[in-house]
Amino acid sequence: MSQNPSSLNSLVSVKNVGMVFRSSAGETTALQEANLEIQQGEFISLIGPSGCGKTTLLRLLADLVSATSGEILIGGMTPSVARANRAYGYVFQAPVLYDWRTVISNVLLPLEIMNYPAQTRKARAEEMLRLVGLEKFAKNYPWQLSGGMQQRVSIARALAFDPKLLFMDEPFGALDEITRENLNLELLRLWRETGKTVIFVTHSIDEAVFLSTRVVVMTARPGRIERIIEVDLPQPRDENTRELPRFFEISTEIRECLRRGHQ
């Protein structure tokens, strides 16, 4: 396992982290001995089959569950302190927009909870909607938007309070291929413009390679990190990136790695 020497400077540091669920059927190891160092500004994808612990790892980082062993540091803080300091924005598999709030008021939600001054809130939310290109839909209700638009609103909401980190758990998994590729491009633009560090869970190899600076390949039973693959495709990436020979090479490498882990 590649242990980054500059772990003191990493934004996210995962050391020997394990997670065991106890149920009536006995113990299930959701994650075993995970080690990962993430630097500021990286775009990291976690990829693997279901049950490989990729979502568990993200939820551990977000302090939505607690690790049973090992140590996680986010900007030098434990996950619970990081959460209390609103260090990250989280985008879920579903948009999770609140039905009773209009689009803009959904983006306002975190700002209200974090007690941002009322005068700056609205300008900030409008800016975020412009960033994802939905300023025209500010007054609509979520059900009036398509699935892709709803997920864009949820990204705007996650960025509203300007966290350094963006956690994304298969955000485009439920969308069609064309919408997904458009949103991939848009996400890369957001990443370049905002300079956020993104940790992105997916089970699409294509998506992982296209978006990431590094891909963390995970395998199931027990869930663990199999390999971390550097994606040295040129930046900024665009529609043509997917046609580069190097894109296929890296995709193949990940595919073989996943297959090996599956046996």
Partner: peptide, 16 residues
């Protein structure tokens, strides 16, 4: 559960 998780990612209080 996801709606509640969202609130937790904001470190929202029980009252909130």
């Amino acid at each position: 559960p996801l709606s509640l998780d969202l609130m937790n990612t904001y470190h929202a209080s029980r009252v909130q």
